[in-house]
Amino acid sequence: MLLLDCPWCGPRDETEYHYGGQAHVRYPQVPADLTDQEWAEYLFFRDNPEGPFAERWVHSTGCRRWFNVMRDTTSYRVLAVYRPTDPRPEGSR
């Protein structure tokens, strides 16, 4: 049971959140300009590192807001929590 520190509500159990996968994957500005391969990368390919990983969570049963978490995918330790508008911490992917 992870303990995630919602930037707006404070620390809450994992069960209050939903997972949103890798953070910082922007929707392409003009999808039509992409090749099929590039579009496939956007659709389906995500980083899957063993170690620090910048990921998205949403506080679904709380404030319903999205935020980013840098978490180690092996130790499950939360290394940083930051708002979507904050810069990505060093060392994450």
Partner: peptide, 13 residues
Amino acid sequence: DSYNGYGRRGSFH
């Protein structure tokens, strides 16, 4: 479990 993880463990709920 919903999240990415290499920890060979999940959450109790």
